[in-house]
Simulated assay, not measured.
Amino acid sequence: MLAEFAPAKVNLYLHVTGRREDGYHLLDSLAVFGPAGDLLTLVPAATLTLALDGPFGGALTAEPDNLVLRAARALATAAGRVAGARLTLSKGLPVASGIGGGSADAAAALRGLDRLWGLGLEAAALARIAAPLGADIPVCLLSRPTRMGGIGEVLRPAPILPECGLLLVNPGIALATPAVFRARQGAFTPPAVLPTRWPDAAAMARDLAALRNDLEAPAIALCPQVATVLAALRSLPGCLLARMSGSGATCFGLFPDAAAARAAAGGLPAAWWREAGGLYGGGG
């Protein structure tokens, strides 16, 4: 049996920089990977099956074709082999929550099946298979701090990040990404200018505070609880920055270190989903 962790993708900022003729929006974002995630286990089998469990597994049972299965079939087709594996997805991330859970799961399937089937594909080959399935899957394949451009498929190195902590919070409300984009109004935002590194979390928070998530306002219009979560995060001791991730409704608080983030989590309502710790794949 193999296991692949699928960490949450968190957008420290997200600028909508334009829109293509086909309707897709162009973005500029700094993506990091947080302390929470899903877990995909993989066992050899003659046919392809997927079982769901975990706190949020039930939310996916009605899906006719989970993205994990689509990723598995795409990899098998590219490799010229039969798609066979018994997959179990333990869903620890809220669904439709702006932290890339479905994309992270598909990326975990591609990484895990590449190992299970002994394909030995290079990262670039997996990214080519991933791209048609979803714009966020290539960055989730990396699962490390990355600068995102285009519709999400243009990936560049991130600045060197300092040690820091993240507190992820979701009020328990799903937000559909297309609806949030449709609700966005106003002009486009230029790409950010970032340094090559930040000396500490406080310096990073100061620079990020001058940036924004262009989807935060439309998300709040659709889901006012996002504003409630942000206000609660900003009131916590040690919180350096509070912002919504992706298209919401998950928000994050940036803290000096993982211990401070974990300590602050106790100050939030127990009914909210929350996870705290350091960054996955770099920066503490």
Rank of each mutant, 00 (worst) to 15 (best):
K9N: 10
V10W: 05
V10H: 06
L12C: 13
R19P: 06
D22E: 02
Y24A: 04
L26K: 07
T41I: 10
V43P: 02
V43L: 11
P44T: 07
A45P: 08
T47Y: 08
G58A: 12
G58M: 06
L60P: 03
D65Q: 14
R73E: 09
A74Y: 08
T77L: 14
G80A: 05
R81K: 15
R81C: 13
A85R: 08
G98P: 02
A104D: 12
A104W: 04
A106T: 07
A108Q: 04
A108M: 13
L110I: 10
L110R: 11
G112N: 05
D114A: 05
G118D: 13
L126K: 02
I129S: 07
L133P: 06
A135I: 10
V139C: 13
C140F: 01
R144N: 06
M148V: 14
M148Y: 08
G149P: 05
P159G: 06
C164R: 03
L167A: 12
P171A: 01
G172D: 10
I173C: 02
A174W: 01
A174P: 05
P178H: 06
P178M: 06
V180C: 02
A183H: 04
R184H: 03
G186K: 14
P191Q: 10
P195T: 07
W198L: 04
P199W: 05
P199T: 09
A202F: 09
A202K: 14
A203W: 09
D207E: 15
L215G: 08
E216A: 13
A217L: 15
V226Y: 04
V229M: 02
L230S: 14
R234I: 00
L236N: 11
L236S: 13
G238F: 09
L240R: 11
A242I: 03
S247D: 08
S247R: 10
G253F: 10
L254I: 01
L254A: 06
F255G: 15
R262M: 14
A263R: 14
A264F: 07
G266S: 03
G266E: 06
P269M: 12
A271C: 10
A276P: 05
G277D: 04
L279I: 00
G282P: 09
G283A: 09
G283V: 04
